[in-house]
Design a protein around this nucleic acid. Structure first.
Lengths: 246, 246
DNA sequence: CGCAGTTTTGATGGACCTCAAAGACCGTGG
DNA sequence: CCACGGTCTTTGAGGTCCATCAAAACTGCG
């Protein structure tokens, strides 16, 4: 951990340098950002922010995975986003967090105190432009997910989630999703259920069903092999691959 | 219609001047925008954009209501957004429309050809800032809607939708939602079903049920009276009012 | 081994969907 | 004025998918 920590103290070495909110910055802008940034780490399972918390910082996810979720008083939970490396947490000009943010794996954040960040945004248009672009992408993803939540069957929901994870995983290792690929599920059955608007039992049953139909194979409980990508895509209910990864 | 048309040829007279993407612009910036804008109108029911269409313009809704939706090949439809006056359609730096846009009522758009708009955005930061702010708000709304779609019961979904429409209606007439207020449903039962991830029969049944429980009264099929706002809020499943309108 | 957390599997019930038909509303034309 | 058709809405009957409740199997770890 501390080794990594060392590594990206210098923005030039940062693993998310080319995708994060800072990706468009010129060297001098980067220097200004570098002056107000600091790193924080969270262990798997730890909360990062509670809904309603005062926002003292905004941040980029550098490593690890976090979830964005909402919970009703009676305990019903809906995950509203999956935060992967380079994704942005928080928003300028807002005092409080609108959702819960929880570290799913060990997480490292690159944080900026909110006020200085807001000032910087006003003076360096590249940050604002990139943030707009990222936010528009997030909005499209959220809207696509609304179709999954509102209209898809349990089986289609599972297939959709598996496909998304498969694609993101492929992007991370700079490969193209292909037949025979394998990937790890970063989420528990319960988290998957919270993402999909199902119960964990239904998630388990549908994964078993997809296995039985030979759409996927399991290597242990968390590792998935996709023999034929086309068959998984067919199970999502979408007509075709839907135009690549986000 | 043509009277209105005359009215907002001058941005200074525009009804959405203070909320739309142009709301932060200085007089000279407004002049530049004014040079590339033009109005288009659509009759109720007309499509404005099909998913996949080449985007030649971006636009603000000036009057009327439009929906943003997605349809699967087998016909299942999910509405992913409701576009009201001042809401923005399209996105800079994207060639094609990601969703269908349909006029629900008669609609007037203030359009900007996309290229000139993109250039303007690069030179006038106020537009980009406002668009970022609006997009972040939209993203929060979309995420809140994911909880409705994923976790709420049919009755809670209906109550949530009614409350949202009630609040937006109150904002439009510059009032505060209150006991005894009335408002019109701009959507058919089928559109409501598409918004809520239900069937139109279930929507109808749950509206009847809320009427029977005296949470709402109906004046005709499209006009709703809310005797006690608190009771409607209670039916949404949310703990309390959730911090005002967006 | 024994325990806690996670996952699977089974049995049952209920919320919502599907199919069907009747009722309400509205404009058109006789 | 009423008949007529079209659209929207309501209501009913029955079935299905998924939630709920319950218990067993698996996994990792002290």
């Amino acid at each position: 951990m501390s080794v990594l920590h060392m590594d990206f103290k210098d923005c030039g070495q940062c693993p998310i340098r080319h995708r994060a909110v800072c990706s468009r910055c010129e060297p001098d802008e980067l220097e200004a950002l570098e002056a107000v940034k600091y790193y924080r780490t969270y262990d798997a399972g730890q909360p990062i922010l509670w809904s309603g918390d005062h926002l003292e910082f905004v941040a980029s996810v550098v490593t690890g995975i976090a979830t964005l979720s909402q919970t009703m008083e009676d305990g019903r939970t809906q995950m509203v986003g999956l935060l992967l490396p380079s994704d942005f947490i928080g928003r300028p000009n807002r005092e409080t967090a609108p959702f819960d943010v929880v570290a799913v794996s060990d997480v490292t954040l690159c944080c900026f105190r909110r006020r200085p960040f807001e000032n910087l945004m006003a003076s360096t248009p590249h940050i604002g432009h990139r943030l707009l672009e990222m936010t528009l992408d997030e909005l499209d993803s959220a809207r696509e997910w609304m179709l999954v939540l509102g209209r898809k069957t349990a089986r289609e929901k599972i297939a959709s989630l598996l496909l998304i994870i498969a694609r993101r995983d492929a992007v991370l290792r700079k490969k193209v999703p292909s037949d025979g690929m394998t990937f790890d599920l970063p989420l528990t059955r319960e988290s998957m259920a919270d993402y999909l608007g199902l119960t964990l039992e239904t998630v388990s049953r549908q994964i078993s069903a997809l296995k039985k139909s030979e759409v996927i194979e399991l290597q242990g409980k968390r590792r998935v092999l996709v023999p034929e990508l086309e068959r998984l895509v067919a199970e999502t209910g979408d007509d075709f691959d839907g135009g690549m990864i986000s």
